[in-house]
Every structure is written in structure tokens, then in C-alpha cells.
């Protein structure tokens, strides 16, 4: 489903990312671990077509990302991806509901009713009023709302960039559990990036990013 072959990225003459090949199958759960500075973020930006490789290509669902125009890329990202960041996922001045339905605002294929949002939050074991402003939530709650926004509309690819790093032990575990359940229930492909190897259990495939990125080999 995702095919990467001899993909390179760099600024001016310095190459910071060089991947020989990577294939990700549909429904697969990938765990990428790597130290900070190993260009994981760059990799995610390339994967969701925010950055373009200097050479080589990334193919998603048979579409070469480099062949798309900027606005089609934006639409492609809106329709097919759900992205969760380390923290500060939400717009603080919007309510929980507004934050979640924001994902549908830029996409034609993602649609969500209030009931769907509620049941998704139930599945993620978060019980807050939909009207609560995001800035009033705890970090753990915010990450679950972010997960809900990534999952809403059933996108095929979920990218998670250290989503648990701001959480403490217990909340971390329960977050991973509900995320996994929901990703499985939606039959989505999960690409999970973290420096914390202890989270790797339960993933189909584990990559060491330092080995994947030939710049560091």
C-alpha cells in the first residue's frame, strides 16, 4: 500500500534522510523507533506529502505523491490520513466537538455526525462534554481528543508521532490500548513513531529508524 524506494531528502547538499526501500501493507501496524535527530519527523512530513523527497518517490495506494499538485496533496492528506502529534494537537479556542469535526472540514470523504463523535469518544474511553473548550482539558484528555480527530471519518492511514511522550505511565498504557482497539476496529494502517521501545509490543513490524535511514549507517 505504501511503497518507498531509494527516497532521499536533504537541505542543500546535506542529505538527512536516505531510505533504500520500505513497504507497508494495508492494515499493518508499524512501530518506528529512533533517537531524536534521526529525521523521524522529516520522514513523517514526507509520508503525508507536506515535504517532497529530493529524489526517489513515495507511492501511496498506487499514487505517486510527487505527481500530485499542491492542492491535490492537501486534499489527499485530508481524505486519507489521520495524524496525532506529540502534544498541542488541538486548537485551544475550539470545543472538543469543533476540534474533532475540523478533520471533516477540509475533506470530502470524511463525514461525522454528533453521534459518531460521541461513540468514538466512548470507544476511546473519554467522557467529556462536547462543548468543553480544548484548553480546559488535561493533557491525557487532549491526546484522546486528538486520537478521535485522527480516527474520525475512518482514514486509511494513521500517523502517530510520539503521541504518548507527554503522558505518564498509566495514561500512556490506556491510551495505547484504546488507540490500538480503535485502529483495529477501523482496519486502518498505523505508523507509530516513538523513541520508547517499551511501547513496541503488539505491533506487527518494528523498525529501528537508525538502520532504516542510511545516513546514519
Amino acid at each position: 500500500m505504501i511503497n518507498i524506494s531509494t527516497c532521499r531528502f536533504g537541505y542543500e547538499k546535506e542529505t538527512i534522510l536516505d531510505i533504500e526501500s520500505l513497504h507497508i501493507k494495508e492494515g499493518e501496524h508499524i512501530f518506528l523507533h529512533g533517537k531524536s535527530g534521526s529525521a523521524k519527523s522529516t520522514f513523517l512530513n514526507l509520508l503525508c506529502a507536506v515535504l517532497e523527497p529530493t529524489c526517489g518517490d513515495i507511492e501511496v495506494f498506487g499514487t505517486k505523491l510527487s505527481s500530485l499538485s499542491t492542492s491535490v496533496k492537501d486534499r489527499f492528506r485530508a481524505d486519507n490520513y489521520g495524524i496525532i502529534f506529540q502534544q498541542f494537537n488541538l486548537l485551544p479556542y475550539l470545543s472538543v466537538e469543533e476540534n474533532i469535526s475540523l478533520a471533516c472540514g477540509f475533506s470530502k470523504s470524511k463525514r461525522a455526525t454528533k453521534e459518531e463523535i460521541e461513540s468514538l469518544l466512548d470507544a476511546l474511553q473519554l467522557s467529556v462534554d462536547l462543548k468543553t473548550p480544548a484548553m480546559k482539558l488535561s493533557v491525557g484528555q487532549q491526546q484522546r481528543v486528538a486520537a478521535a480527530r485522527a480516527l474520525i471519518g475512518k482514514p486509511k492511514i494513521i500517523l502517530a508521532d510520539e503521541p504518548t511522550s507527554a503522558l505518564d505511565g498509566d495514561t500512556k498504557e490506556s491510551f495505547m490500548r484504546v488507540l490500538f482497539n480503535q485502529v483495529e476496529a477501523q482496519n486502518a494502517t498505523l505508523i507509530f513513531v516513538s523513541h520508547d521501545k517499551s511501547l513496541a509490543s503488539g505491533f506487527n513490524t518494528v523498525y529501528d529508524f537508525a538502520k532504516l535511514n542510511r545516513v546514519f549507517v
Partner: peptide, 10 residues
């Protein structure tokens, strides 16, 4: 955040 959700230049 908006860009990650697919918001473009426009």
C-alpha cells in the same frame, strides 16, 4: 494543525 488536516494555501 490546520495543514495536517489538509488545509492548503487557500
Amino acid at each position: 494543525i490546520l495543514r495536517s488536516l489538509g488545509a492548503g494555501v487557500k
